[in-house]
Design a binder for these strands. Structure first.
Length: 471
DNA sequence: GGCCACAC
């Protein structure tokens, strides 16, 4: 299988609202020979206020580029999607991508009326370089030098692992990512092959069903921890794997009645561990957990006895699964509805697009702009009408205004309402930006170069402000 | 069919 290593730069940290400004992706074969690449930039999406630190300090994209790049955000998405599809079945590798880049891509597709799960459907898989490099470091300290944190834990910031002059450029970060992947591929074939096997849900599920005792890595409080666990079953509502931490003797729990067991299972540290099977996790053979003092003390023989006791007690496993299901159900019923979610935030609201909306989305994409505009309002699910209107407004404001003035005005009012909001929002408002500018002016008061840059960003946002003040 | 959710 070929690999795509990729990175993207955006106008801020929100995966729902910020605008993708740059994407670089490199296609390589399974020995890392380069086959193709894609590099694209986009101007700021209409109606988005950038986060000053993100554009100025992190991705270092000038106000001029934000304003004048030829390609729109929508067009960049179409170009990237086309390229990705031409590459066939691949594994998409990014750094911390399960938490960030993949989320951005999903939502970007979603907002563009495309199928969101491009990177893990139709035979594609996702890998997260952060997961594999953390695990590599834990099982083999010599694999890579890292800085140490105050608490003496290895630091996994990409630009300290692979220092470069031009870090945080999409291409530079992708090349750095590639060198990390190659490092694991060359220095620890066992880990590499193992990871390729468990990085998608199917592989991870098969592995945990097959291995009586296996090692799961969990990251919390700034470091990675190895657990020796044994499979119980899949969560009846959420499908993730549930496994027994063999640091606990399961026999101690067998005689408890349901109520007492439920209470005991909730005690921290929890004897039941979650195996996040669809999060590109590293799962290893049990030997890798034996480095952990807790399991070393217990000894392999006792661990095997515990796993056997668990595996031969189906009644207990089923009872545990029932308890976990009931607790989840209770939590769902207690959860109050989250009001006021913006359309961009509803990708995981539990509903996929119905057949009619799916067909309309396809029609939207092959239609010319006159006909795209006519589709607005026809979707069953109103969020797709919202997205369609915003796309048409961003791409062809002239045409939208002349052929569907009410929609045009509504979109402009939506944007104005958002950017001029004085509340604490999940997107950057004009007010947030002004505060960021003030802080930066104070910080750089003696740096004329930075001050000049600040003025350019400020002008850009003032122009957006002027444009929507009248809306 | 893909997704979310946990636990520390």
């Amino acid at each position: 299988m070929n690999y795509v290593i990729f990175d993207l730069e955006a106008s801020g940290a929100s995966t729902s609202f910020d605008s993708v400004l740059e994407i670089y992706a490199k296609l390589v074969d399974d020995e890392f020979n380069e086959l193709d690449e894609f590099h694209g930039r986009a101007r700021l999406t209409e109606g988005v206020i950038p986060n000053l630190t993100a554009v100025m300090e992190v991705c270092k994209i000038s106000a001029d580029t934000l304003r004048n790049t030829n390609t729109s955000n929508f067009q960049l998405l179409l170009d990237a999607e086309k390229k990705f599809q031409s590459w066939g079945k691949v594994i998409f590798f990014g750094y911390n991508s399960t938490n960030y880049d993949i989320e951005v891509i999903r939502k970007w597709l979603f907002k563009s009326l495309k199928k969101p799960y491009l990177t893990n459907t139709n035979g594609n898989k996702q890998g997260d370089i952060l997961n594999i490099i953390r695990s590599a470091k834990l099982i083999d300290d010599k694999i890579i030098k890292t800085k140490m944190s105050e608490k003496n834990n290895p630091v996994f910031k990409l630009d300290t692992l692979i220092p470069r002059e031009d870090s945080h450029g999409a291409r530079s970060d992708t090349i750095a990512c590639e060198s990390l992947l190659k490092l694991v591929y060359k220095k620890n074939k066992m880990l590499w092959n193992n990871y390729l096997n468990t990085l998608n849900r199917e592989g991870a599920e098969n592995f945990i069903k097959k291995e009586k005792i296996f090692c799961n890595h969990e990251w919390f409080y700034g470091r990675l921890r190895a657990y020796a666990v044994s499979f119980i079953g899949f969560h009846k509502i959420y499908r993730w794997g549930l496994a027994w931490d063999l640091a606990n003797a399961p026999e101690d729990y067998f005689k408890l009645n349901k109520k007492d067991l439920a209470i005991k299972l909730k005690k921290t540290p929890r004897p039941i561990r979650t195996i996040r099977t669809n999060k590109s996790i590293v799962l290893l053979h049990k030997e890798y957990a034996m480095e952990n003092e807790i399991y070393k003390k217990i000894g392999t023989k006792t661990l095997i006895d515990r796993a056997d006791a668990l595996q031969t007690n189906d009644d207990f496993k089923n009872l545990v699964l029932d308890i976990i299901e009931e607790q989840a159900q209770e939590k769902i019923s207690l959860k109050e509805d989250k009001p006021n979610l913006q359309p961009e935030e509803t990708i995981y609201d539990g509903k996929f697009a119905d057949k009619k909306d799916e067909i309309l989305m396809e029609k939207f994409h092959y239609s010319d702009w006159e006909n795209k505009i006519k589709i607005i309002g026809s979707f069953n699910d109103n969020k797709y009408n919202f997205f369609a209107a915003h796309i048409c407004h961003a791409e062809r404001p002239d045409l939208l205004q002349s052929t569907a003035e009410t929609i045009y005005k509504n979109v402009r009012r939506d944007i104005a309402k958002r950017i001029f909001s004085t509340k604490n929002e999940n997107w950057t408002t004009v007010g947030d930006f002004m505060k960021q500018i003030d802080d930066a002016r104070a910080k750089y008061e003696n740096d004329s170069k930075k001050l000049a840059l600040l003025e350019d960003y400020n002008t850009l946002v003032m122009d957006i402000q002027k444009k929507y003040e009248v809306a």
